[in-house]
Design a protein around this nucleic acid. Structure first.
Length: 451
RNA sequence: UCCGCGAUAGCUCAGCAGGUAGAGCAGGUGACUGUUAAUCACCGGGUCGGCGGUUCGAAUCCGUCUCGCGGAGCCA
């Protein structure tokens, strides 16, 4: 952000001066200059005649020094009694100092004004429980770790958009209200339309991307999706964000390569921008994250089952992996792992069966290392009308609801593929967080709708 | 839905061979000119989740309900 020179009409004691209004993010440009910072008191320490105020302004954190000799006694008393998270406006000189926390600079305060006094701020300096912090999410997001996570989230979203925008994919938003289930029937949030018809909150934008890619070639959607599953684990949210690219004339191999290239690009972008946040603030060991380089190891579902069995876990070929299976399997690798050709039986109706072995689907899961689970799932779609209709009937779907979807197979059907990536799981892995709920500003989970 | 764990000060937790509550942080007052979750001294703060039961006596033992947490299933 560019600094601006404006008179501060609302602050009487500087009315006659022109002062630089600065932000902490651009503070190093103002070395030895007199600036005004508007922000909040993050923490305070005192030592008699000198006070250390830790200020945050949304763009960063900085330490302010209030020396008794530099300010009026009224201002010193005011600073001494400032409470945590009071909003303040301070004017002072920027100085580099090796002792300064956060940004290596400090502001030597010459004037200080309180904008609003904060009373009994609930989040103390000592430790808190997760439930308490989630109940105070609206305040918790002010703290330095949460600040970093949400900034990295914003960067990840930008990286995702930039990747697809610059690789020929057109953003085509899928609707959120949908008349029917995409994959199953039991996991949707239900609501009522004006005419009394039941409608659902979308759990995936994929079907609409299939229509979009037949119109525009390569498309993607990126928005919130909703799952009504009563999952209570650190990998689950009932509302989360998913990016779903889809491309015409792309087969399973193409989708795998796209997923690899995409993930490498986005992870590299995040590392370039946020390596310091990750290592210093989130204390993330980035060794494995930095291994996100093409190509990723690949394994067939059946081979993965053998491997899991050899690791001593019980698994029947034909069953889907459970969480412990995934975790043990991915522990064998120091990179994201791609598992392909799951049994058709356990996959969605639109998955294309393998030509040589129709018991298995042309699908892929990308499993994150370090136990964060599946972060990408996708594959090639069934593009034959008759085969698709049979599959839909086998899945108990009402063909009438899907006439438009079948039209895509009637009017110039082509092989096409795509995948979906869960934003929060990917972010939780990059940041090394215990729980995905910290990766979204306001998490919606089974037991939490507030704040 | 199932399996575990938990509920004590504003917050984090200790107290559980049954004898009516304690620390740190937060808040208040004071000391301290370089603190890094600063430190030190003092002060205020609690129907020990609800309801029943056992007992002379329950935060502590038993039952039950409510709420929270973790995991499984399902999934990104």
């Amino acid at each position: 952000m560019v600094d601006v020179f404006v008179p501060l009409f609302n602050i009487p004691f500087v009315m006659t001066e022109l002062i630089t209004i600065s932000t902490i993010s651009t503070i190093s440009n103002n070395q030895l200059k007199l600036v005004t910072l508007n922000g909040w008191l993050y923490n305070k320490r005192g030592s008699g005649k000198i006070l250390f105020l830790q200020i945050r302004d949304g763009t960063g954190f900085i330490q302010a020094i209030v020396n008794q000799n530099d300010v009026s006694s009224a201002e010193f008393e005011l600073a001494k009694h400032l409470s945590q998270e009071s909003s303040i406006s301070i004017t002072g000189t920027i100085n580099k100092d090796s002792r300064a926390p956060f940004c290596g600079h400090e502001i030597w305060v010459s004037q200080i004004e309180i904008i609003s006094h904060s009373q009994d701020y609930p989040i103390a300096k000592k430790s808190h429980g997760d439930a308490f912090l989630m109940s105070n999410r609206h305040l918790w997001m002010r703290s330095i770790k949460q600040h970093s996570i949400l900034k990295i989230r914003a960067s990840l979203i930008r990286a995702i958009r930039d990747y697809f925008d610059s690789h020929g994919f057109l953003l085509i938003d899928s609707p959120i209200f949908t008349p029917n289930a995409c994959e199953g029937t039991s996991t949707l949030f239900e609501t009522e339309w004006f005419n009394g018809q039941k409608v659902y909150l979308s759990q995936s934008g994929q079907l609409y991307q299939e229509a979009a890619c037949a119109a525009f070639g390569k498309t993607y959607c990126f928005g919130p999706v909703f799952r009504a599953e009563k999952s209570k684990t650190r990998r689950h949210l009932n509302e989360f964000w998913m990016v779903e690219p889809e491309a015409a004339f792309m087969d399973l191999e193409g989708t795998i390569q796209l997923a690899e290239d995409f993930l490498c690009y986005t992870v590299e972008r995040i590392l370039n921008i946020h390596e310091k946040d990750l290592t210093n603030i989130l204390e993330r060991d980035l060794t494995i994250v930095k291994n996100t380089r093409k190509p990723f190891p690949r394994i067939l579902y059946t081979d993965a089952c053998d491997k899991i069995a050899k690791l001593g876990l019980e698994i029947k070929t034909g069953d889907d992996f459970g969480s412990p299976h995934e975790t043990e399997l991915t522990k064998q690798y120091d990179k994201p792992l791609i598992v392909t050709h799951f049994p058709s039986k356990i996959k969605a109706f639109y998955m294309k069966k393998d030509e040589f072995n129709p018991d298995f689907a042309k699908c892929m899961d990308l499993l994150s290392p370090e136990g964060y689970g599946e972060i990408i799932g996708g594959g090639q779609r069934e593009n034959n009308e008759q085969t698709l209709m049979i599959e839909m009937q086998n899945h108990g779907l009402n063909l009438k609801d899907f006439e438009w979807f079948l039209d895509l197979r009637r009017y110039g059907s082509v092989p096409h593929s795509g995948f979906g990536m869960g934003l929060e799981r990917c972010l939780a892995w990059i940041c090394g967080l215990h729980h995905v709920r910290e990766t979204i500003p306001f998490a919606r989970t089974l037991d939490r709708m507030n704040p």
